[in-house]
Design a binder for these strands. Structure first.
Lengths: 129, 129
DNA sequence: ATTTGACCTGGAGCGCACTCCAGGGTGAAT
DNA sequence: ATTCACCCTGGAGTGCGCTCCAGGTCAAAT
C-alpha cells in the first residue's frame, strides 16, 4: 500500500497540491509560516520540487489542521523537530491534541443527536400535514 | 428533566449568556445578524429579557454553530420560520446539514486514527531510548 | 445625591487562515 | 520569435465570527 508513486525529481507544487488536497497558495503559505519540516528542493530554474517525505509531511499537516490544530500550535510542534531529544515533548503535544479532538468529537456527536431529534420532529410534523 | 427554571419576567442578557454558553456580545451579534426567531422582549428600561423559548432557540443556534453551520446558512434557516408551510424546506436544510456533520465526523475520526498511530510510533521510539 | 453595576447602541477592530495579485522568470511547443 | 503554461516573490486583500469600545441610560444601594 504505497501512495501514488513519486518520481525521484519530486513533484511540482501543483502536483503536490493535488495529492495533498491543499492549494498551491496554501502550500507556499505553510512554508512561509514555517510548518514544513524542511523546505522543498528547487529545480535548476528555482521551482519547488516536493520529495516523497515532503508529501508525507503535508499529510501530517492536513491531519493536524483538519482536526482543528491552529497554525501557531503546529509551528510549535514542527519547531520541536529541530531540537534533539524533543520526542517526549512532541508526544505530549500529540496526546493533548488527541484529547482535544476526542472531546470535540463527543460534543459534535451530542449535537448530532439533537439534530436527529429535530429532524424526527419535522418528519412527523410534515407527515401529519 | 427541565432546564434550570426561567422566571416569567425572563432572563437578563448576562444570565442568558451564562445558560447558553455564549457571551453577551455574541448574543447581541446573533440578534443583529437575524439569527433569533423573535427579538427578545424588553424591560421597561429597554433591557432584553430572554423568555424560555428564546433560551431554547439559543440552544439550537449553539448546536448549529458548534457543528459548523455558517452564520449565513443559519440565517437562511431562520428566515424560513417566517414563511408559512416551509417545514419541508427546513427539514431539507437540517438533513443536508446532518449529512455534512456526519461526513465531517468520519473525516475527523480517520485523522484521529492517524494521530493514534503517530502517538504509538513515538511511544515505542521514546521507550527504546 | 451620588455612586455603582449592568445594560444599551452603532460602529470599529481583531485574529485567523487563507487567497489573490502584480510583475516577472523559464522552458517547451508552434 | 512568440505564445503558452506554469512557476516565482512580496505583499495586499478577504471572509468569517466574533470582540471591544465610547458614550450614554437606568435602577438600586449607600
Amino acid at each position: 500500500m504505497t501512495t501514488t508513486a513519486i518520481p525521484a525529481e519530486g513533484l511540482t507544487i501543483s502536483a503536490a497540491a493535488e495529492v495533498s488536497g491543499l492549494t498551491v497558495d496554501t502550500l507556499r503559505y505553510y512554508e512561509k509560516e514555517g510548518l514544513t519540516l524542511h523546505k522543498p528542493e528547487r529545480s535548476t530554474s528555482g521551482q519547488r520540487r516536493y520529495a516523497e517525505s515532503d508529501v508525507r509531511w503535508l499529510g501530517t499537516l492536513v491531519m493536524l489542521r483538519r482536526t482543528g490544530m491552529p497554525i501557531r500550535d503546529i509551528r510549535r510542534f514542527v519547531d520541536l523537530y529541530r531540537i534533539e531529544g524533543s520526542e517526549p515533548d512532541r508526544l505530549a503535544i500529540l496526546e493533548s491534541h488527541r484529547e482535544h479532538v476526542r472531546e470535540q468529537l463527543r460534543e459534535v456527536q451530542t449535537h448530532l443527536e439533537a439534530i436527529d431529534r429535530k429532524i424526527d420532529f419535522y418528519n412527523t410534523k410534515v407527515m401529519n400535514k
